[in-house]
């Protein structure tokens, strides 16, 4: 497992039904591109988050493919419409097979 990986998410606690809210996500990850070499000249193997998804009550909101050129600690911000009270589920997929996830509830009000 890559070290120091920690997902962070910011979602408003409440929203009006049908309102578009801004969701901010960030995961601390070194995003090693696979292009760099260490002091001995050996290639440092690629190790990145290659996919990010967000679901709301089981329905896909966004599904992102991440590429090696993306910087350390990828930050993804997007808008989502909230039709009803429910839960956003966020998932990040690591090259090494690890999956990190977190969830946030949104109430209508």
């Amino acid at each position: 497992m890559a070290s120091g990986v920690k997902p962070r998410v910011k979602v408003p606690k409440t929203a009006a039904a049908g309102e578009a809210i801004t969701i901010k996500t960030l995961i601390s990850h070194k995003m090693e591109s696979g292009q760099r070499k260490d002091k001995e000249g050996n290639v440092i193997p690629r190790s990145i988050i290659n996919r990010f998804t967000c679901e709301f009550n089981g329905e896909s909101v966004i599904d992102v493919t991440l590429e090696p050129a993306i910087s350390t600690n990828p930050y993804i911000e997007f808008d989502a419409t909230v039709p009803e009270a429910g839960e956003f589920k966020f998932t990040w997929y690591d090259d090494d097979g690890d999956v990190y996830d977190t969830a946030k509830k949104v109430a209508i009000g």
Binding site: G4, K6, K10, L26, S28, N73
Partner: peptide, 11 residues
């Protein structure tokens, strides 16, 4: 949340 320096504060 937008301040990347806060990641290091958490660490």
């Amino acid at each position: 949340f937008d301040n990347p320096g806060m990641i290091f504060v958490e660490q």
